[in-house]
Design a protein around this nucleic acid. Sequence first.
RNA 1: UGGCCUAUGGUGUAACUGGCUAACACAUCUGUUUUUGGUACAGAAGAGUCUAGGUUCGAAACCUAGUAGGCCAACCA
Length: 669
Amino acid sequence: MSEEIKSLNFIEHIIEEDLANGLPKDKLRFRFPPEPNGYLHIGHTKAIGISFGLGERYDAPVNLRFDDTNPAKEEQEYVDAIKRDIAWLGYKWENELYSSDYFQKLYDWAVLMIKDGKAYVDSQSSEVMAKQKGTPTQVGTNSPYRDRSVEENLELFEGMKAGKFPAGTHLLRAKIDMKDPNMLMRDPIMYRIMYAHHHRTGDDWCIYPMYDWTHGESDYLEQISHSLCSLEFKPHRKLYDWFRDNVYEYSKDKFPLPPKQREFARLNLSYTIMSKRKLLRLVEEGIVSGWDDPRMPTISGLRRRGYTPNSIRKFIEKVGVAKRENIIDVSLLEFCIRENLNKTANRVMAVLDPVKVVITNYPKDKEEWLEAENNQEDDSAGFRKVPFSREIYIERDDFKEEARNKYFRLKLGGEVRLKNAYIIKANEVVKDQNGDILEIQCTYDEDTSKKVKGTLHWVSIKHAITAEIREYDRLFMHESPDSDKDKDFMEFLNPNSLTIKTGYLEPSLADVEVGEQFQFQRLGYFNVDNDSTPQKLVFNKTVGLRDSWAKQKPKPQNNENQNKPKPQQQKRSAISVIQQFGKKYTNLPEEKQQKVKSEIQALAKDVAYDDLEPLFCTAVKKSGTRIAVLIALKVLLKNGLEENEAINDFIEKAKEDKNEILVAEASEI
RNA sequence: UGGCCUAUGGUGUAACUGGCUAACACAUCUGUUUUUGGUACAGAAGAGUCUAGGUUCGAAACCUAGUAGGCCAACCA
């Protein structure tokens, strides 16, 4: 292994700096704090990968903490699912913890804060309080209850805890600043009354702490060194620090390390949604079969689809960590799973859209069991036998009566190799009255040493077993379905995200087990679905193979599929070539400059003034581009273009430029 | 009439904290090999780092202003 210099992301830089400034390495501690109100999805995997990845990198403990402060939304089912998913990804947590474990400690601290005049009980309605809060651009006003005496506050807070008041009548608020430009600092709520059964504490409590009060203090109690979360919590940081610093005063002897929160940009995947609420809607409205539907971006969905922990971890590693908004192309995820499965999945043959081939010179009753390599990428994978006989299926797509030379597959009069078997030649087609092909009549040749361009997969009809094959397309037709302000994300649903077919498989697949993964040769990677039984096999298509042939075909796809932007710059207009010359112009030796100049002049003949004008406002420092534009402009002027204000401005500015070449070119006019 | 954050090829992330021709991966396109139009290998194209000023011998990085995008007004997390 060569010494790999891996560049650090900004969080690792922060940690390195803290370490350099004297933070002992053994104080490093991280956490992943999901709320158990839904299933984990690929977006969470980034947060998981960051915190657990840091734990692995620095050999530091990582806690799994369930942020369970809202009993109205949380359930044990989700706790179990979350634990299963994280374990499946291959991460190990140090401690399994719950925010609800800290309810008593939090309460005690809150009492201390009341005693110090840092918190008070408010007794207004939520509407009134909302009004007092102000807006981002308008300061708030103080609550009339803000100056209650310590004694009164204490009595009311104890009453709240004792269940003396109905929900909604009182709240505990931190006394900070109703004029703070950060809305979260305007006397945030610490506790609300809530008569709800909690999945862990039962009915012990009827007041529940809010996120801001709970989260940072839980970090503090666990002595987390770096509390990592996504960008939308950035505004919370000021409050996080305020609560932390106050509580630190009470407990610094016992808990000496004040944690710090840092934020990173969350993961967005193209053509999918990440919001738990929206995913729940897909489940509830029956758009998908459940949280683990193979089209879902949930971890359980990806698992069922055939994604491996390795592929997902690799993906997260490649995606990186930064602070800017991003949309990662699904092709990266697909690359990761292909790369993984290419090494591990055994190759088999399956025909999903069959057309019958009869090998007329092969005896009717004969059958042969031919040897086939399981995986050429893996020497230990071994071999298996596949049956061959007179009648086989190939893909309908793999035959054309006539085709161009670029078509490597079977055509009339043409030869093709059958994978692991013989070379066949197509002689005739039999059609029904509609002109649809019923069978292709071929002859085979036992000499397999011949060189032929195409190799097809196939399956012996007599020996084939059938299976249900589920193929998936993206769930949404829009690159970023939930970012449209006018349209509901449901409007972008792809009506054809699931296709079910009957496939004909080689008989070696008769006794597969749920979860097993294969490469159906030339088609893609498939795994055995949970619904599969020995009587009725069910396969999911995990992902297709890279297909450079499909790209060459014109693709008569339905229109919806075409809204993929794909701004490929294949055509290369004259103006863009000129721009490109411009970029390099000033760096070229003089003789080359002359050459490029004349090329620009030639190209300029094909350039319209309207293309040129926008380039007048090219940045001043891009003098190369300005020179190229000027050269082209001169050609246009010579050919009769009339001068206008924009042109004159551009020329005048060029004359005053620092760059001598530009000045020289400009002066020639 | 606010506060905070962000801006680097089509996409994502780098650039040892101000110093070589702005790097890597995906995507795209060429070749070579191939009993998978897969894999592997080789190569190409694509970015003057949002704009304008400034500081400096030197700026993607620092400063100022602008532009664009995002987040913030739940008794959610």
